[in-house]
């Protein structure tokens, strides 16, 4: 159970097509293969951060330079990042694009991840952050490109939510 090579390839291709040169991330398990892939990409500066709020603030600073950055994280990170996202987006119209795993989606086998699914959409709605849930690998690349176009036109954040189907994570049945 892992993020397929094709999904990694499509994610990196989407970031390159969107002219992203900085990727901040806080590793998690659903998309775990993407983090070493980002770290080894020669044309993308990968920045491990200590929490998602710090990461989105760094991404906001990159935006102010005219370059493009993405924050890659678990969807639980929207809770940790809520304060800086509100300040950046609602308070200053500084857009940040996030790619987040959809923990707590249908099929979630981990009890600890269920709250992530419960809170994700209400948090995004409260922060007025539009999002797209991506369930098919072939949709990853165009969604990333369109998310950056939308975020920079609207001067608002955008969240790309990658499900377990994109990472081939969820087991067919739970083990007892």
């Amino acid at each position: 159970m892992s993020m397929s090579p094709k999904a990694i390839e499509e994610t990196l291709a989407g970031l390159r097509e969107a002219n992203v040169t900085v990727a901040c991330f806080l590793p998690e398990s659903l998309l775990k293969e993407i983090y070493p892939a980002l770290a080894s990409a020669e044309d993308i500066r990968a920045i491990p951060v200590t929490n998602e709020g710090e990461g989105v603030a760094i991404c906001g600073g990159v935006y102010l330079s005219g370059k493009r950055a993405v924050m890659v994280m678990e969807n639980s990170g929207i809770r940790a990042a809520a304060e800086p996202l509100a300040r950046l987006g609602l308070g200053a119209r500084i857009p940040v694009v996030m790619i987040m795993s959809y923990r707590g989606d249908i099929g979630e086998p981990n009890w600890w991840a269920v709250p992530h699914g419960i809170t994700m959409k209400p948090m995004l709605k409260a922060l007025r952050i539009p999002y797209t849930v991506v369930r098919n690998v072939e949709d990853i690349r165009p969604t990333i490109v369109k998310a950056f176009t939308m975020a920079y036109a609207a001067m608002n954040h955008y969240a790309i939510v990658l499900t377990g189907e994109c990472s081939d994570f969820f087991p067919k049945s739970s083990k007892v």
Partner: peptide
């Protein structure tokens, strides 16, 4: 000067700006 009303964001944002420039 970017005047930011953002507790906890100032140094991270400045770091992001330094990455881009």
């Amino acid at each position: 000067s970017l005047f930011q009303q953002q507790l906890g964001c100032v140094t991270p944002e400045a770091f992001g700006l330094s990455l881009g420039l």
